[in-house]
Design a protein around this nucleic acid. Structure first.
Lengths: 136, 136
DNA sequence: CTGTATCCTACGCGATACTG
DNA sequence: CAGTATCGCGTAGGATACAG
């Protein structure tokens, strides 16, 4: 429904070989980047690496996430086709979440982001300390 | 200003070779990921690719960013050692922003995220449409 | 041009309670 | 167990005005 935006969706964000992509607010890239940039999506995708996890399992693993936000986040990811939701008709209910093929391709990138963070956290800590010291 | 987090930073986020990284809220990875996940940082880093840009140039390029948020974002990135700030003592003032060597290493990852987004925006749009249609 | 200082609102998100 | 529904707060961030 809200697809019918008369707004011209920027189809080509890359000009030639240069990576000068579109920065308009209504750019698809921005839309998706915002999703990735929310508080939990990235965590969930990173965690859902080639194995499926149950709702409660995710909730226990991700420190600090509320029931509500886990649900909301999973729904968004499901809507984006990144995560699959499988309901087992048993009692008590059991729901498994896993990455879709599309989700897997994103996971690779996410993972490299996490890896980068792990590799450089010390440098960042040092930089922060220096900055704070200098501005004292 | 008073950013003095006395919170114990978790030192080891990686257990062995497994990529089961720490998900605690006070984990460094989470701290940095949160920074990356804010509304503008990612955009700025992506834009600052191997060339320096002036304040106004950034502001014009990033659609929708306010003066305040650009300043705040740049300060954070500078504090994290990802972006360098060069003030030219001329009048009117001229300030150039550029990626530091550390920032460049992050840029590569960010760029792959942007590229992924560009490559798969159609799939996501389709997935969303299907999801919305199904839940009608 | 490149900021900084206030003010103020929207909404992300947590807490809690309830349901199938 | 796996949600949904409500309420309410904190704060990210926009608007505006002022300054070096």
């Amino acid at each position: 429904m809200e697809e019918g935006t008369s707004k011209e969706p920027s189809h080509s964000c890359c000009t030639e070989d240069a990576f000068q992509w579109d920065t308009r607010e209504d750019c698809d890239v921005r839309q998706i980047l915002d999703r990735i940039g929310d508080k939990w999506s990235l965590l969930v995708i990173a965690l859902l690496d080639n194995r499926s996890m149950r709702f409660t399992e995710l909730k226990k693993t991700i420190d600090g996430i509320s029931q509500r936000m886990l649900t909301v986040t999973l729904r968004q990811l499901e809507r984006d086709g990144l995560v699959s939701r499988t309901v087992h008709p048993v009692v008590p209910p059991r729901v498994d979440y896993a990455l879709t093929p599309l989700g897997v391709t994103l996971h690779a990138t996410i993972q490299s982001l996490v890896t980068w963070t792990e590799s450089h956290q010390t440098e960042i800590a040092v930089a922060r300390a220096r900055y704070d010291a200098a501005s004292s």
